[in-house]
Design a protein around this nucleic acid. Structure first.
Length: 259
DNA sequence: AGGCAGGTTCTTA
DNA sequence: TAAGAACCTGCC
């Protein structure tokens, strides 16, 4: 399938802004993407045009995954031109799209992410997939079925307990992530934070990258540094509703890709 | 070699 | 409500 977007889309930046940990680039325009149970190769043919290797029945899945119906050009245009810092970040980050990813995968991945470096996150996620005997992301029952030793071998450290607990709950149905989709942003965050191992930051990541709540604004060390250095009097969240999360991605990309 | 990493929880006041 | 310590490992 070939998708021609009348919109900004930069494959490398989208995969490089910390939202996906199972994107493996072979060059700037070619990436193997594994998402939930699916896998494909995405090839950027020209600015805004990508080719995706998939069956006809999977086309809608990948379109939703890449969020083809949202105009990131329009969102970028909301950036206050007098905010020189954000403008610069947005310009550099132009083409980032917020992926619409699997809920359970986001939950587990971002629990893993706490106090870990990017490479370490990737390693752990990879090992978790392998431990469950597949290249696709394991379902809750598979993770719950691992022994303590197998789970520990994924390099999860103290997070192993969090992951086992929540996987058991999802597997036995006492936690239904899908049912949370109808909640308001505030209620959703509250429910997610009831999960052991999920605090404010991880909940925001799950909201932004899983539930596609584009107003969620995860505050990690990078963003906190941005906020104190460039917005000592406070960031104007109100101005960017309901797209604060996209602005967060611009700031994050700017902070992590500064020479 | 040893500190630190895309936080969260627990404890203490 | 707020500040500080502890937490597992892998990476650099």
């Amino acid at each position: 399938m070939i998708i021609e977007l009348d919109d900004d889309f930069d494959l490398r930046k989208t995969g490089d802004c910390g939202q996906a940990f199972r994107w493996n680039f072979t060059d700037d325009f070619t990436v193997r993407v594994r998402a939930g149970k699916k896998e494909t190769i995405i090839h950027e043919l020209a600015p805004g045009t990508v080719e995706i290797d998939c069956s006809e029945e999977d086309e809608s899945f990948w379109k939703k995954y890449l969020d083809v119906d949202t105009s990131y050009r329009d969102i970028a245009a909301l950036v206050d031109k007098e905010d020189f810092h954000l403008s610069t970040c947005a310009e550099n980050a132009k083409g980032i799209r917020i992926l619409h990813q699997d809920l359970f995968e986001m939950l587990i991945t971002f629990i893993i992410s706490q106090r870990k470096s990017m490479p370490a996150i990737r390693t752990s996620v990879e090992r978790l997939c392998e431990a469950c005997g597949s290249t696709c992301f394991p379902d809750a029952a598979s993770i719950a079925g691992l022994t303590d030793a197998e789970l520990a071998a994924c390099g999860l450290g103290y997070r192993a307990e969090y992951i086992r607990l929540v996987s058991e709950k999802v597997a036995d149905g006492s936690l239904n992530l899908k049912s949370y989709e109808s909640l308001s942003d505030d209620d959703l965050k509250e429910k997610l934070m009831e999960i052991r191992g999920v605090g404010e930051k991880v909940a925001s990541c799950i909201m932004l990258f899983g539930y596609h709540r584009l107003n969620a604004f995860p505050k990690d060390v990078w963003i906190n540094r941005e906020l104190t250095e460039h917005y000592p009097d406070g960031f104007n969240y109100k101005k960017y509703e309901p797209y604060c999360g996209v602005m967060q991605q611009y700031l994050f990309y700017g902070a992590t890709h500064r020479k």
